[in-house]
Design a protein around this nucleic acid. Structure first.
Lengths: 133, 133
DNA sequence: AGCATGAGTGAAACAAGTTTTCATTTCCGT
DNA sequence: ACGGAAATGAAAACTTGTTTCACTCATGCT
């Protein structure tokens, strides 16, 4: 349980809050949620926690929503891609590598697909698609 | 030639500058380039021109580079996707729809691919890939 | 237990990109 | 010409995200 480093109370609260969201979240959303359990917790700490998680590979960027960066917890181990609803942040995971045909086409054009920038595919969940948002 | 509206001198300069770039550009880059021909042209006008072009469909967002949004001129008419080098902005166009297998996989997960957010695929051109950037 | 150390913290200052405001200028149809 | 709508540029405002800094406090050592 030392993975969290010293003084881990706040990060533990943030971690629980983030896991409970079950979808892509902004730092402000994470902060708002964690604050319910820890009212003194500052926004700066939320930014720092997400930064750390990203460096450690627990979390990855999932695009932006309304100008704010969103993140998802990356639980699956093997090669996979996240599908993220651009409206509500709902996520799904594609196990196989559905991007191979795209990679081939991109390479035929003389480019290499930048996988690190395609960790999550922008999509719309059935609810948001039905809402016509 | 009325597509540009009134007082079109500055926007014409910006349009020429943008087309001459031949790659994805930031608003600041566009402004810097256009300023060589029109030194009084303000940054605000460049922002406004790009906004208008995007609304009109001449231009689409192509992700970000160093924290700045980038844009590409969208010349092809049919269904297509841009491939954009995340380092230098070089572009290519995929004529067919190489994304169909991805769409199928995403739909199997209960989502709909958000095409408008996938107008350009992040990639690296051969030069930047070789530079190891 | 006492203590020194350094990671952790939050408020506030800062930075960068983009948008808005506003007074002024320029174009265009009349 | 003229009147009005659109366009313009400078500056201010806003937004998101980062950095600074003084301070707290858990941790490991004695």
């Amino acid at each position: 349980m030392e993975e969290l480093g010293r003084n881990r109370k706040n990060r533990a609260v943030l971690l629980r809050a983030g896991r409970e969201m079950g979808r892509a979240f902004t730092v402000a959303e994470l902060h708002r949620s964690a604050r319910e359990a820890q009212p003194t917790l500052g926004l700066t700490t939320a930014y720092r926690a997400v930064d750390r998680w990203r460096e450690e590979g627990f979390v990855e960027e999932a695009g932006t929503r309304g100008g704010e960066a969103t993140y998802v917890f990356c639980t699956a181990a093997g090669h996979h891609h996240h599908v993220v609803c651009v409206d509500c942040g709902a996520t799904a995971t594609l196990e196989g590598c559905a991007l191979e045909p795209v990679r081939t086409a991109v390479e035929a054009a003389g480019f290499e697909l930048a996988d690190e920038a395609l960790g999550s595919l922008p999509a719309r969940c059935s609810t948001c698609a039905a809402d016509g948002r």
